[in-house]
Design a protein around this nucleic acid. Structure first.
Length: 500
RNA sequence: CGGGGCGUAGCGCAGUCUGGUAGCGCGACGGUUUUGGGUACCGUAGGUCGUGAGUUCGAAUCUCGCCGCCCCGACCA
């Protein structure tokens, strides 16, 4: 993908080597209709070794960890993101993404791109600032209220920082699509949005500026549009699963976007903002490795039926009578974090904005649309809420900023230094990029840092084990350790990440 | 936007009531020590006390205004 290479000059060592933590995607082509290419963002996804590669060593990295809890953070994900040096607040609900947070953000973004393109959806990029006139066409300029950040440029033109993109994508569509032959079409982008929340809180979970994937389908009729809706549901299930999350689709209320068909995806967590009621057997449903043909309407609808058959609703649509029908042993109430939502809204935007196509028999009809969002930046918080302990974050392998950490217990000792560098090189040769803690710190301090930042695996290298030719491989999640040769450790890590 | 709270060193806080020119812990830096779970000791650096005005011989401290942030509520991916 040479076209993405050019972007790499933004980054020095960090941006370039970040590329390689993301293994080449292995996407089955049968379902997708386009080659799967994710936009670059300065990330080369090519597998070939880079020149001038820099080892990710902690003494040369930027990881401002905090030993104590910042006073402003109330919930665990916010506390850990601050303590693990992932984010820094710049204003209420607005954050800088420090290197560690940025890596995870990009990793999540990457998974979203891959799964969208696997489903046949086409990436593009729309601006953050939009002209108000587009929103006057749909009538939402007045409807949206104070949540929309309105800006005036030097020529006194009304602009806004987009909270969503239905109007703009409809404008793009109507400018370029005239025929039913161009359908079905789903365009999506991952872009920063702004909603001027009255009270931002919980760190990136409820920021004012947030990164969101939003996709829009254009179809000839309602049936085709509902297939797009189902396709999104399945692709979202797969997306969340790859991130190590159990996100349950729940029937939702439509809100300001409009439409009858809508589901929200919720991750169960005590700190969630939504009250949820569900049959707990939904949490056992998994997509797993099954192959899905996204063009097969019946197959996709079948998967949706499987995942929505059991009762699962938010308080907005809660139906007490239906809930009572769930066997008592499986009846659960709790809280959830909303990490995505899909809508079918028909011709709500295409009609007033004149987004029409000509049918085979020469008629001109408005297209049927839906929109589909994933809260990308919010997912960082949701994942941490769902995966942590009292020592810190526990990253699922799918989204971890580094696959493994190497801890050198005796920095400066020729044998341990050499063993660590050997491990590093061995892992790099397998396409994995470890984080090497080469600081001159006590073992306890190094372990505490590793636990806090939550890499799923740790290789500990000390003189004691090395005397017997062994290093120690430890799982962050279980805490279990196993002694083995460095070569075996490399092989084990490579095996764990194979296919990711 | 209504209600409450807080702004003092990078982080967590004391000092404010009762005005006298700023302190503790962690962190950082330099040593000694230690070396498989945030070691111990010695030393060093670091502060427009959010901001503006006022009262006073003198303001972190009292008065008024402004700004920012946090919490509860209503609102939201």
């Amino acid at each position: 993908m040479p076209q993405y290479r050019a972007c790499c000059r933004i980054g020095s060592a960090i941006a370039i080597s970040f590329a390689d933590v993301i293994p080449q995607a292995r996407l089955p082509r049968k379902a997708g209709r386009l080659p799967c290419q994710a936009p670059g963002f300065g990330i080369s996804r090519c597998g070939s070794p880079q020149k001038h590669e820099t080892m990710m060593r902690l003494t040369r990295y930027f990881l401002p960890v905090l030993k104590e809890n910042p006073a402003e953070a109330q919930i665990v994900s916010h506390r850990y993101m601050l303590r693990a040096g992932m984010i820094k607040q710049q204003a209420a609900g607005i954050y800088s993404w420090l290197p560690m947070g940025y890596r995870v953000l990009r990793r999540i973004e990457q998974i979203v791109h891959e799964e969208q393109q696997r489903a046949g959806h086409v990436p593009l990029l729309m601006p953050t600032l939009q002209p108000a006139d587009l929103w006057r066409e749909s009538g939402r300029y007045d409807d949206y209220g104070q949540e929309m950040l309105r800006i005036r440029d030097r020529h006194e033109r009304d602009m806004l920082y987009g909270p969503t993109n239905e109007e703009m994508i409809t404008d793009i569509f109507r400018a370029h699509v005239e025929s039913y032959k161009a359908l079905p079409l789903t365009l999506y982008h991952i872009q920063w949005k702004f909603r001027d929340e009255i009270r931002p809180r919980f760190g990136v979970m409820r920021g004012r500026e947030f990164l969101m994937k939003d996709g829009y389908n254009f179809d000839i009729d309602k049936e085709a549009a509902l297939h797009a809706y189902n396709r999104h549901m399945v692709s979202y299930l797969r997306t969340y699963e790859r991130m190590g999350l159990t996100a349950i689709p729940m029937r939702a209320a439509s809100g300001p976007i409009g439409g009858d068909n809508t589901h929200e995806f919720l991750v169960l967590a005590a700190t969630g903002e939504s009250e949820v009621f569900y049959d707990d057997r939904v949490t056992a449903l998994k997509l797993g490795q099954r192959e899905i043909n996204y063009d097969d309407r019946a197959e996709v609808a079948g998967v949706c039926a499987e995942f929505t058959r059991l009762y699962a609703r938010t308080d907005e649509t809660h139906d007490v009578a239906a809930f009572e029908a769930v066997p008592e042993a499986h009846r659960k109430a709790g809280r959830g974090i909303e990490v995505g939502q899909i809508f079918y809204f028909g011709t709500k935007y295409s009609e007033p904005m004149g987004a029409t196509v000509v049918t085979p028999d020469g008629a001109r009809v408005p297209v049927h649309m839906g929109s589909h969002g994933i809260g990308v930046s919010r997912l960082l918080g949701a994942i941490i809420e769902a995966s942590h302990d009292d020592k810190g974050i526990i990253w699922p392998e799918g989204v971890t900023p580094f696959p493994v950490g190497i801890v050198n217990l005796k920095q400066g000792d020729a044998a341990t230094d050499a063993a660590c560098e050997g491990l590093y090189a061995g892992l790099r040769a397998r396409g994995l990029e470890p984080l090497y803690d080469d600081r001159d710190e006590r073992a306890g301090a190094k372990f505490a840092t590793m636990d806090l930042i939550g890499l799923p695996w740790r290789i500990t290298v000390g003189p004691r084990g090395l005397a017997a030719g062994k290093v120690e491989l430890t799982s962050r999640r279980t805490g279990e350790s196993e002694e083995m040769s460095p070569e075996a450790a490399v092989a084990r890590i490579a095996q764990i990440y194979e296919g990711r």
